[in-house]
Design a protein around this nucleic acid. Sequence first.
RNA 1: AACUCCGUGGUGUAACGGUAGCACAACAGAUUUUGGUUCUGUUUGUCAAGGUUCGAAUCCUUGCGGAGUUGCCA
Length: 558
Amino acid sequence: MSTAASPSKDFIREIIDQDLTTGKHDGTVTRFPPEPNGYLHIGHAKSICLNFGIAQEYGGRCHLRFDDTNPTKEDVEYVDSIKEDIHWLGFDWGDHLYFASDYFDKLYEWALHLIKEGKAYVDDQSSEEMRAGRGDLQTPGTDSPFRDRPVEENLDLFQRMKEGEFEDGSRVLRARIDMAHPNLNMRDPVLYRIVDAVHHRTGDAWKIYPMYDFTHGQSDALEYVTHSLCTLEFENHRPLYDWFLDNLPVPSRPRQIEFSRLNLNYTVMSKRKLLQLVTDGYVSGWDDPRMPTISGIRRRGYPAEAIRSFCKTIGITKFKSTNDIALLESSVREVLNRDAKRYMAVLDPIKVVITNYPVDQVEEFDAVINPEDPELGTRKVPFSRELYIERADFMEDPPKKFFRLAPGKEVRFRCAYFIRCDEVIKDDDGEILELRCTFDPETRGGENPPDGRKVKATIHWVSAPHALDAEVRLYDRLFATEDPDGGDGDFLDHLNPDSLEIISNAKLEPNLASAETGETVQFERLGYFAVDPDSKEDGIVFNRTVGLRDSWAKAKGK
RNA sequence: AACUCCGUGGUGUAACGGUAGCACAACAGAUUUUGGUUCUGUUUGUCAAGGUUCGAAUCCUUGCGGAGUUGCCA
């Protein structure tokens, strides 16, 4: 369905098309292979949309495989959150949930195979010695003194490594390829290392663990993955990926294809840095709404559909690029404009008293729930003599282009009446306490009056006695500079000190009492706001998802 | 000249030897009971130099620029 919608295909889909037409494959199998050592972020979303998206489009399947070959870093906690995030994004792996650790026996057997073929050996060098022997970018490496160890000795040593006879780090199993290879990954890479740790799935069954390189391609082959899609930094691992497939009796022949990872400006994406933000308390957790994690984005109120459409617009290429956060926000607004219910909320209230409105009278006005979806109908909004409006919607001494309320000026209170400001009441410090205004009964519902009078602005309001109190958390970008990773110094130096502003006395239209946790609504003229899980019975909490486009703010800034 | 990969408006991406297009951003204007939405228009680009060709963003050569790679991480 979506294949017909997109006029052009990325280079990966073109390769798949070709493999299908040439008969190289008669189906398409992809996989998403996270290591369960952290939370997923929007960069992973790109890969998820690619792999699961291809499976959908081609009627194939996409496996979820946890790359759990390093027990010191991994945990089930991450397995669970990763599954949740993928589901939230709208994808499902069906019965195809796998773990690299499922293949430990097979991989061990294949290691023995290489040893017997003279293509792997046990190396007793320390990691320092190995590093020295590897050479560097310019100079070839030198052979390990253990490189020509007899097969029987290798078999014996490797088995004893497995049985836990040796200390961590004392020996490794290496492939016997070429110490002078221009690609460092081919200079006798490590296949197995000794790790004395409890694995979250295999417990203490293993004392040795395979490396990523010795695991990934073989796992793909065992699962009959046809196209193994990964990011660019694995490009120079591909010769090794292929070397294992060439030298092992694998059941199928997957192909690794690399694409460019996602970068976004004004944020960081590396797991290490995100972790530091959490552990050092710069954010409230992995799901802090300012984080680029899937859980953060979700809590912020970004719809999964917007993430998917964003991933579609940025495309798949091999060139390094940095996407503008504005592009993501534009996808978010597009979905939310279509779907979000509208309400009125006042974030920074000033009291307004309608002096000619009866003291105890309350009227209910009909307000459209979503102009993009008229079938949703209308809601009732109470209006009374005392109201709140936004402080920014009143100026005592307005500039020419200011259309909103000012002394002697008239505006429309949305869906209610034309209101004129007569008087400004201030305290001794000159702080505005309230505005005294009058309404025009001939403008009921906000209609233009019979005399043809017009106003230039319509502003939102909340009836004071009916208002719900709420906390609203306003988020801005976490970093003040476009590329916090670039340049000199610590990325933490680029943190935006104003990335969170908490408003504790926001006034909401009473209909908002029924908003559910996780729901994202529009506060008219302000932006989109999502109900935070911190909300309690007696106090609702909103996160600002993203503001509305604001051409007045822009004009004012000039 | 280590090796590999990559260079298209401000950003992201298309054009598969035949009119450089789309989205975001920006800037104008129209509509509007959200300074929202919608609609219209405008500005800005093929890294460079050679070559092949009737014709080059696309093919070739050279140069320039960027990224990745020297974990017993993935």
